[in-house]
Simulated scan of single mutants.
Amino acid sequence: MTGTKKGCDRGECGACTVLIDGRRVLSCLTLAVGAQGAEVTTIEGLAPDGELHPLQHAFWETDAFQCGFCTAGQVMSAVGCINEGHASTDTEIKEWMSGNICRCAAYPQIVSAVSAAAAAMRPGADDERTDR
């Protein structure tokens, strides 16, 4: 798998973020034995049937990636952020995503993507959508 990136190797950049049992963790600071028996989800696991996860789609729609190096970690952290209930406002998203660094400074687009995906993933969101 090539999605999870090795960034700083010190837990400072967030490029290596994965989900372990649905909780976001920095893989560079996680011993493999600590994940034994747990469900580990990487960026590749978000779209098992080839259809983009709502967050991947939102990143694409809002152009929330530039060079792409941080994208996998940003997306995985954003999934965790939304699942943890920390995506109600732009300020909250910025705070809870602050451990993920983007060298290209696509932060406004990243916040927009997380906000859009949070709305799309909200229970009943399909009922709120109208045909286009």
Rank of each mutant, 00 (worst) to 15 (best):
M1K: 05
T2Q: 11
T2N: 10
K5Q: 05
C8D: 10
G11C: 14
G14P: 00
A15N: 07
C16L: 12
L19D: 00
L19K: 01
I20H: 09
V25N: 03
C28T: 14
L29D: 02
T30W: 05
L31N: 04
V33R: 12
G34Q: 14
G34Y: 08
G37D: 09
E39V: 15
E39N: 10
V40Q: 14
V40H: 11
T41W: 13
T41R: 13
T41H: 11
T42W: 12
T42L: 13
G45S: 10
G45A: 12
G45M: 11
L46W: 00
A47M: 09
D49T: 08
G50Q: 03
E51S: 07
L55Y: 06
A58Q: 01
A58L: 02
F59H: 09
W60H: 09
E61N: 09
T62M: 14
T62W: 07
D63H: 10
A64G: 01
A64C: 03
A64L: 05
F65D: 10
C67I: 03
F69D: 02
F69I: 03
T71D: 11
T71W: 13
G73C: 12
G73S: 09
Q74V: 15
M76G: 09
M76I: 10
I82H: 02
I82Y: 02
N83W: 08
E84H: 07
G85I: 12
H86N: 15
S88K: 15
T89M: 11
D90K: 15
D90E: 15
T91W: 15
K94Q: 15
M97N: 12
S98L: 12
I101S: 00
C104R: 02
A105Y: 10
A105M: 12
A105R: 10
A105Q: 07
A105G: 04
A106R: 06
A106M: 06
Y107D: 02
P108R: 07
P108V: 07
Q109V: 10
S112I: 04
A113P: 00
A113E: 02
A113S: 06
A113C: 03
V114M: 06
A116P: 01
A118D: 00
A118R: 05
A119D: 05
M121S: 04
M121T: 02
R122E: 15
P123K: 11
P123H: 05
P123M: 08
A125H: 00
D126L: 13
D127P: 02
D127G: 06
R129W: 00
